Amino acid sequence: MFATSLTRRVALAAGLLATTSLAWSHADAAHVTAENAWARASVPGQQATGAFVRLTAKEPLRLVGVETPAAAVAEVHEMKMEGDVMRMRAIDSLDLPQGVAVELKPGGYHIMLQQLKAPLLKDTQVPITLVFKDGKDAVSRLSLQVPVQAMAPKGAAAAPAGHAGHGGHQH
């Protein structure tokens, strides 16, 4: 009798947790399309690499965070010229206008994975979750399995000449 009561309580608690977590987010960001996602392969000892994707939002959103078990730090970064120096820095959010494809690509906005826990090996996949907020600050997430490549796959934006890697840029 005690075991049955305990089982019912655990099931009820699990149901409440599931309902509560849904209240905190949209239905897993079905309102964002991700295309041509890829992450740059790394080598042993390399501490950082980039991930890239084309995002199209079905409603105005902001990309406000990145989560992955592959790195201690995952951020949205921008690269831009300041004088004749290319600078890279983390940004708090990236606007995604409704229906407009926004490219996260080498040499521009991108996902930066730092303090890698292990090398990202070519022809594997890395789990990355993108975190969004809408105009009412409701949070939603989009979980991706991102292919790891040595270079941009066909159809994905490539780095501009001279800006293929992340090394040597000032933060």
Rank of each mutant, 00 (worst) to 15 (best):
P60G: 07
P60S: 10
L61S: 03
L61C: 06
L61M: 06
L61Q: 02
R62Y: 02
R62T: 01
L63S: 01
L63P: 02
L63K: 02
L63W: 00
L63I: 03
L63M: 04
V64W: 05
V64F: 11
V64R: 11
V64K: 07
V64E: 04
V64N: 09
G65Y: 01
G65H: 02
G65T: 03
G65L: 03
G65M: 05
G65R: 01
G65D: 02
V66G: 11
V66Y: 06
E67P: 02
E67M: 10
T68V: 10
T68P: 03
T68K: 02
T68I: 04
T68L: 05
T68C: 07
T68N: 05
P69I: 06
P69V: 07
A70R: 09
A70V: 12
A71Y: 05
A71V: 07
A71E: 07
A71C: 11
A72V: 06
A72R: 09
A72Y: 05
A72F: 06
V73E: 13
A74P: 05
A74S: 11
A74T: 03
E75F: 08
E75A: 14
V76T: 08
V76R: 00
V76L: 06
V76Y: 01
H77L: 09
E78I: 13
M79W: 04
M79Y: 09
M79A: 14
K80Y: 13
M81P: 04
M81C: 07
M81A: 13
E82D: 05
E82C: 04
G83N: 09
G83F: 10
G83A: 10
D84M: 14
D84L: 15
D84R: 15
D84W: 15
D84N: 15
V85G: 08
V85H: 11
V85R: 14
V85N: 11
V85C: 13
M86I: 12
M86V: 15
M86N: 11
R87M: 13
R87E: 08
R87G: 10
R87I: 13
R87Q: 12
R87Y: 05
R87P: 05
M88P: 03
R89C: 13
R89W: 13
R89F: 14
R89V: 14
A90T: 05
A90Q: 04
I91L: 14
I91Y: 12
L94M: 12
L94G: 09
L94Y: 03
L94P: 09
D95K: 02
D95F: 02
L96Q: 00
L96V: 00
L96F: 02
L96C: 01
P97G: 11
P97W: 05
P97N: 08
P97Y: 04
Q98M: 15
Q98P: 13
Q98G: 14
G99M: 10
G99E: 09
V100A: 09
V100M: 06
V100N: 02
A101T: 12
A101F: 03
V102W: 00
E103F: 04
E103D: 14
L104Q: 02
L104N: 01
L104D: 00
K105G: 01
K105D: 00
